[in-house]
Simulated assay, not measured.
Amino acid sequence: MRRKALFTAVALGTVGSLAAALGPPSSAVPAAAPPSAAAAPQAARQPAGHPVVLVDCFWHGRVRPTDFVLACGDGNSRLSSLHWSRWNRAEAVARGDNWVNDCKPYCAVGHFHRYPVVVRLDHSQSWKKHPSLRHYTRIHLTYTDGRPDGFPRTVTYPLWN
């Protein structure tokens, strides 16, 4: 089971890296959206007053995703198995796992390690791509059982707009 999760994390990270590096032309339409992003276009068309979204690496607004790539450029950090207990205008809270590549001796041959985390999203504001929607602009990860080398117990990252 762990090998399957590791393979999935590596595969998704690779795809995310390639997509971010190549970037689709503005007229491109993806042939098929990944299952976790399938509802994103519909969510992006909803008027104000609907749930705040989390913007992913492909600029899709997602609500309560089960997986989320933190390191869009290289895929070396991602969240998985997210179970949301709260999702409102002020904040969203979930428990899940942060899979992080140790990059030893370098990232291409490094190993992914799983760290249980509590995820908190906050600081919602209008999304530039869809001004009628709000999106979370900050993510906090609190490691509950071990953490990557050199990481504090809680880390905070800005999210893209």
Rank of each mutant, 00 (worst) to 15 (best):
W160S: 11
A28H: 09
T137N: 08
F7K: 10
F7T: 07
A44V: 11
A39D: 15
G96P: 01
P116C: 09
P41E: 02
G23V: 01
W84Y: 11
S26F: 10
C103H: 15
D122W: 10
A90S: 12
G13S: 05
L79Y: 01
G13W: 13
S17I: 05
G75M: 08
K128A: 15
A33P: 03
V109I: 09
A19I: 14
Q125Y: 10
D102F: 06
H111S: 10
A94E: 00
S132P: 06
Y106R: 12
V63Y: 04
V55Y: 04
L22G: 01
L133M: 11
W99F: 11
W87L: 15
H113L: 07
G146Q: 13
A31M: 11
D122G: 14
N98S: 08
V100H: 01
V15D: 01
C57T: 11
P30A: 08
L12Q: 05
L133H: 09
G96T: 00
P47H: 03
N98E: 02
F68A: 07
A108Q: 14
R45Q: 15
D145T: 13
V10P: 01
A40V: 11
C103Y: 08
S132K: 10
W59Y: 14
G73Y: 01
A40Q: 11
A38Q: 11
N101C: 14
A108K: 10
P34M: 03
M1Q: 00
K104T: 07
D149R: 15
H60Q: 13
C103D: 02
R95T: 07
P47R: 14
Y143A: 04
H50Y: 03
A21D: 01
A71K: 02
R62P: 04
G49Y: 01
C72F: 03
P34Y: 06
P30N: 03
G146A: 06
V93N: 01
H130P: 08
A94I: 06
D97H: 05
K104G: 04
L22A: 04
K129R: 13
A43R: 13
E91S: 14
T14K: 06
L22E: 05
L22N: 01
P116V: 07
G61H: 02
A92L: 04
N161L: 15
P30G: 05
R64A: 14
D67I: 09
H130L: 13
T8D: 00
G150P: 14
H135P: 05
D74P: 03
V53G: 02
V55K: 04
G110W: 07
